[in-house]
């Protein structure tokens, strides 16, 4: 049985994360190259939508990641509130900007796709609308975290918020869907409009892997920076080889 708590101590996590970051960068580059190749060259031109549909290779994985990252944040928050590990808050904080980035990317690519498809930048589609609300939830988390001075308190308050958010995300999604059917908004759904060919599915999955590796690389880098900032006065930071070299 591996002692997971050992890894959750910043002093052990910091060098470990340092080793993992280049690995994930490499993975992100490889998967990204394969995914984009499938997206641009392997996947066939869509009969109705032409070449424009190819943006879904960014749009769909970005939406997946934005939801997935919020769940991961909630998971770390639960861990942090129950066990009081310092790492949890740092990881949640490190993940939030990337989650917000993917939510924004999803909205932006959705709008870019919507313009040629529906002739409008924005439709009150259930998915797009809940994605927008998710984006607001990310912004709320970051604003709350930034507004509390004491980092430990900020972490714990943010943890409660992300748990409240994760309970609400499905409720918000279904309410928006319900609202959408009542008002008979856009009937064309973004992902199901084209019959999903298996090459397209593969392309999106591989792009999702690329985004996942990118998220890990960036979040770990950010977590390392947060660790140094918060634990600047501790012994283990003073004994870090990269710190001594700089001094």
């Amino acid at each position: 049985m591996i002692n997971w708590f050992k890894f959750s101590a910043p002093s052990t996590f910091y060098p470990l994360a340092g080793k993992l970051v280049p690995v994930f960068w490499l993975l992100a580059a490889i998967f990204g190259a394969i995914g984009l190749y499938i997206g641009f060259f392997v996947a066939p031109t869509d009969a109705q939508q032409g070449e424009g549909y190819r943006i879904i290779f960014i749009h769909v994985p970005a939406s997946w990641m934005s939801m997935f990252i919020y769940c991961v944040m909630a998971f770390w928050s639960l861990l942090g509130l129950t066990f009081g590990t310092r790492l949890s808050g740092m990881m949640t904080t490190a993940l939030a900007p990337t989650g917000a980035l993917f939510a924004f990317l999803s909205l932006w690519t959705g709008a870019l796709w919507g313009k040629p498809m529906w002739g409008t930048w924005w439709v009150w589609d259930a998915r797009l609308t809940s994605e927008l609300i998710l984006f607001f939830l990310y912004l709320g988390y970051m604003a709350l975290h930034a507004a509390i001075d004491d980092p430990r308190r900020a972490d714990r308050a943010g943890a409660v918020l992300s748990l409240v958010g994760v309970v609400n995300v499905p409720i918000i999604y279904f309410s928006v869907k319900w609202w959408n059917t009542l008002h008979q908004g856009a009937s064309v759904s973004l992902t199901k409009s084209a019959s999903m060919a298996s090459t397209m599915l593969w392309g999106m999955l591989i792009m999702a892997l690329a985004f996942w590796a990118y998220t890990l690389a960036v979040a770990l880098m950010r977590a390392r920076a947060i660790m140094l900032e918060r634990e600047a006065n501790t012994e283990w930071v003073k004994h870090l080889p990269d710190i001594r070299r700089a001094a």
């Binding site: 001075d149 004491d150 980092p151 430990r152 918060r230 600047a232 006065n233």
Partner: peptide, 8 residues
Amino acid sequence: CIRGTQTL
């Protein structure tokens, strides 16, 4: 007890 970055 730690307040901010200061150990009290």
